[in-house]
Design a protein around this nucleic acid. Structure first.
Lengths: 343, 343
DNA sequence: GTGAAAGCGCTAACAC
DNA sequence: GTGTTAGCGCTTTCAC
């Protein structure tokens, strides 16, 4: 009850009749200490219910034993799944995870520029964020390992590793699938390609979309591109515009599953049957895709998080490691929202 | 580039021609230091780009400046939304958020018993977890403020505040709604009411369900209760069982929206039309409910997180504060999955 | 108003 | 093998 004075390493040392240094050794590299002493110390540790003060360890070691993860909108299913991968692996390590959510562009710069300098972390994990050159510069100054999960491909100075997906290729392959089905009038519903968070995935997927069209000698029509805020509702609006076109698309490629849901809703509103009147394909393969039977391109969200942590921990152990730029595969999951165009 | 030796308070002191103590004062309670000195110091701080070492501060202050949040399965939409509330408010404070996800019962005890003692946090936020008596005891020993978000109602010694929802009342009101529609054969699809995580919400909602039935003089039928693992797929199985009953329910109350989705799927499989052949109601009002047009009981997920943090921060500031047990309201959101029974 | 000095709890280098 | 000592970088008495 009485929040008894915490038991420190000195208390243990006293009770075990040894010095604090020995207790410390016993708790860490037990090899260097006599078997008996070790056992005795451990018994006292048990009895006193001693647990080392992490903050003191941190100061002494010059390490924070924490990694910072910077993540925008972690409630988005795809992001939360990546985060889940991060957490799952990090939990098995000695590192704490301190999380920084970003919901506004200002927070973005704060996180990217301050956190690395506050010694709040030994390493940084950045999810779905592409640092600007200036930010990368600053990151480099901080001198701590940074790994980008779902970040940009460019070789940034401050970045140690990257785990990413080739969104251009993914967008291209997905579009090609629609083309192979026979579609030539393919709309694209995505984020604003120029946005204050510097999200790049939608833009990259659109680049892939263009490539597929070029390769197939299908003209890229400006009116078939709808940029908007991210989210289901904005995507619904965008899709409405597309469907109101006199020469409306027979298929719509949404930059994410969330956006595909909005497209599906717009189709229903417009009285169109999916996939007969309109094919819809999403991206990510989060749970809603399975629920709705949405054809989509699956990416390994959970694994991207895990892999990112793996690389970070590796670098933390052994700072000299080579930079690695991993690219995770994607896979088309065909469900019930795609079919050849009618007629 | 060269990860220059970090600039410490001593460097600043030297450059400003004052003592480290004064720099410290200047950075914290600027009131006690001469205007000019203060300005001079701040200028040097700027120039040198000095930012205090948080770990050292922590050790010195005897505070970790972090709060730990213990949360099971944070990828579940309802949980992630609560967490979102937590993060949103905590981001405006000086406290870091270190997150501990629980995906297995063992992790549960580890988190509940170790974290409070490692001085990894000045306070604990526990989401959707009900400590056992033993755990509460231990929490109390640690002597740090603990607030339960969506935790149990009982007055636990180690717990300072609670932000919760009256699940019994919510379950009762929801069931009453179905009864008022004319249903008497109402199935319940929930979690295992006895589970290693000690999740209580499904159980409590079922208690409310029973009450509503009693009040309406409708017998509670054992075969109308289906307990299972949490999740959409298990819920689908459970619903299958219910729908295979010779005297099958005309309405099903699912303990969460996720589970309601499973019920909806089972209904479709069985060739039943919702809501004509079967009414379905969920709980939480997460996005999927809106997407599918699911009738559900809304609870204030985001707000529960925010409120929990508010209480914790308050206690951290002023340890003497009264315990508060907040109960957040719920609200029935009627959509398209409920109707009077046929015939 | 400011400097000097002690100490937060631990680790690690150095003796023995 | 183990004790002793000196910090890690900051805050905070206590003098002046």
């Amino acid at each position: 009850m009485a929040p008894d004075k915490r038991v420190t390493i000195r208390d243990v040392a006293l009770a075990a009749g040894v010095s604090p240094g020995t207790v410390s050794r016993a708790m860490n590299d037990s090899s260097l200490v006599n078997e008996d002493t070790h056992r005795r110390i451990m018994r006292v540790v048990e009895e006193l219910d001693y647990t080392p003060n992490v903050v003191a360890r941190r100061l002494s070691l010059g390490k924070t034993l924490a990694v910072g993860v910077i993540v925008p909108f972690f409630t988005r299913p795809s992001v939360s799944e990546r985060l889940n991968g991060v957490v799952s692996l990090l939990a098995t390590s000695q590192y704490d995870l301190v999380i920084h959510n970003i919901e506004a562009p200002e927070q973005r710069v704060t996180c990217l520029t301050e956190i690395p300098f506050n010694e709040q972390a030994d390493g940084i994990l950045s999810i779905s964020l592409t640092p600007t050159d200036a930010e990368a510069e600053r990151l480099a100054q901080a001198g701590l390992p940074v790994v980008l999960i779902d970040g940009d491909h460019r070789a940034l100075k401050g970045v140690h590793h990257q785990v990413t997906v080739d969104d251009v290729a993914g967008g291209e392959a997905t579009t090609r699938y629609l083309i192979e089905l026979g579609h030539t009038k393919i709309g694209f519903v995505g984020d604003y390609h120029d946005n204050p968070f510097n999200f790049t995935s939608s833009r990259d997927r659109y680049v892939g979309y263009q490539r597929a069209l070029w390769e197939a000698d299908i003209p890229v029509r400006a009116e078939y591109l709808e940029e908007n805020q991210h989210g289901r509702r904005p995507a619904r609006e965008s899709a409405r515009n597309l469907l109101a076109l006199t020469d409306r698309p027979t298929a719509i490629f949404a930059a994410s599953d969330t956006q595909a849901v909005g497209v599906l809703e717009a189709a229903r509103e417009a009285g169109l049957t999916v996939p007969d009147d309109l094919s819809v394909v999403g991206y990510d393969d989060v749970e809603i895709a399975d629920i709705l039977g949405l054809t989509t391109r699956r990416q390994l969200l959970f694994e991207s998080g895990r892999r990112g942590v793996e690389l970070l921990l590796q670098t933390l152990e052994n700072p000299g490691t080579e930079r690695v730029f991993d690219t995770l595969p994607t896979e088309l999951i065909v469900r019930e929202t795609t079919a050849p165009p009618q007629g």
